[in-house]
């Protein structure tokens, strides 16, 4: 199935990027059917990541999905805009690696994935408060787990 067909079927909004990778914005409700369709061609989910446009956009988050098709030799980028507290559907039952990638996005940005089997922190320790890659997390605020001999920063 060609990209144009998918573009028409799901009424996606294409944007131009410097790297030339086909990039589309998708509504969060339409993500799951779109990805189910793409799964047959795009065997590999390369990455899930997110961007925080805090104070710059009305919907502060953008979740970015990077796909690779080995059979067609193309890459694809899908973006979903999310507001504070909004959830997006998990893809962990389509691509197994989405499980950990979504946990990382949750850990760093606090974006929750609906239907994720095990949504908890993956990189940071459980007692960590907040999500450090959010723009409103203080840049140099650390949360030590043990009592320190001296203060870290004056």
């Amino acid at each position: 199935m060609g990209l144009e067909e998918i573009e028409r079927e799901f009424s996606l909004e294409r944007i131009e990027t410097a790297d030339g990778i086909p990039t589309y914005y998708c509504e969060k409700e339409g993500l799951l059917p779109l990805m189910e369709k793409l799964k047959s061609d795009f065997e590999i989910l390369l990455d899930i990541t997110a961007v925080d446009y805090f104070g710059k956009r009305e919907k502060r988050f953008e979740v970015v999905y990077l796909l690779l098709s080995l059979s067609q030799k193309i890459r694809l980028r899908i973006k979903v805009r999310l507001g504070e507290g909004e959830k997006v559907s998990t893809l962990s039952f389509l691509w197994k690696n989405a499980n950990w990638l979504e946990r990382e996005v949750y850990d760093m940005f606090g974006i929750e994935f609906e239907g994720h089997p095990d949504l908890r922190r993956i990189l940071l320790y459980p007692e960590f408060k907040g999500h450090p890659l959010r723009k409103d997390y203080p840049l140099k605020k650390s949360q030590p787990r043990i009592k320190l001999l001296r203060s870290e920063r004056e």
Binding site: P132, K140, S142, L149, S151, E152
Partner: peptide, 17 residues
């Protein structure tokens, strides 16, 4: 802590030992 002046890295291990 070197270049990692952020939430993750300990700013010098003499804060621990």
């Amino acid at each position: 802590g070197g270049i990692y002046d952020n939430y993750a890295a300990v700013q010098g291990i003499d804060a621990i030992i």
